[in-house]
Amino acid sequence: MRRRSYGVAGLGASIAVTADGRDEWIEARETLHAHGSVLVHGRLPDWRPQAADNETLSTAVGGGRTGRRQLAHAAARERRAASHLLLGHAVAVALCTDVAEIELTRGPTGRPAVRGCDQIDISLSHTADLLLVGLTTRGLIGVDAEPADRRLRAAGLERRVCTVRERGDLDALPPRERASGLLRLWTLKESYTKAIGQGQRFPFDAFGFGPEGEPVRVHRPDGTPATGSEWSFRSDIRYVHGVAFRMSAAVRDVGLGRTTDIDVATTLDAGIVSTVQEALDGWE
């Protein structure tokens, strides 16, 4: 097994997983238990849902109107289904339960959650053929991934998503590193705002991050640090089947210390349950 390095809040590099893998899921579970957070990623072909979802796919593209829009729509739906499958699998492993028992839900802002199980917070990102999932028992998590060669600069986003300070930092980079630098900032901002359940509703130019090489912290627009040890971040480039991806993650520790046991089966306190049961028997 590779040795991974973990930051203060234990955000190690993402672990590659498949649906029929075993060792990597054991590693993922152990990582979550030891460090309170874990990132896992899979490839779309490995997590494409079987028969049942192929039907939905064929319905979407069927009817003889296989226009580009329908195809794109079907592809997006397939990616969502695969993400859902991976997310469900990851949650089931983390909570030591059967995937069929789990209800994944989305909050009003689209943030995913496990219905009834707040021992874990989850986040999901999908791009191209990559699915990235973050899990934490510390509080809040947000993850984001993009193909490492994606050019946001060309799309003119920089002015809208960066603080003046960040733009200065980017300009100070050698020209060929600027696109990568911007992508790093973008995915960190996505991770942070996804962790707080807001996504791009939180204005991206209202906060920033320092340049690569410094400890990652949220900065105010003037470049002064705005978050302390309660937040931890990670951003790196990983190769997945020969393709480079920028993967970023943000975790907020809510400060209640560690809950090491998060299994569904052990959630209900035996003492409470038997006392409630005794009381109910008294009302029969």
Binding site: G116, T137, E230, L256, I262, T267, L268, V273, V276
Partner: peptide, 27 residues
């Protein structure tokens, strides 16, 4: 925001609440 964590006490307290509700659901 931090004070809300203090008041909620996080998952540990949710679990204790669930231990009160779940045994009563059938009834």
């Amino acid at each position: 925001l931090g004070d809300l964590s203090l008041l909620s006490l996080g998952h540990a307290d949710t679990a204790a609440c669930q231990a009160t509700i779940i045994p009563q659901l059938k009834r």
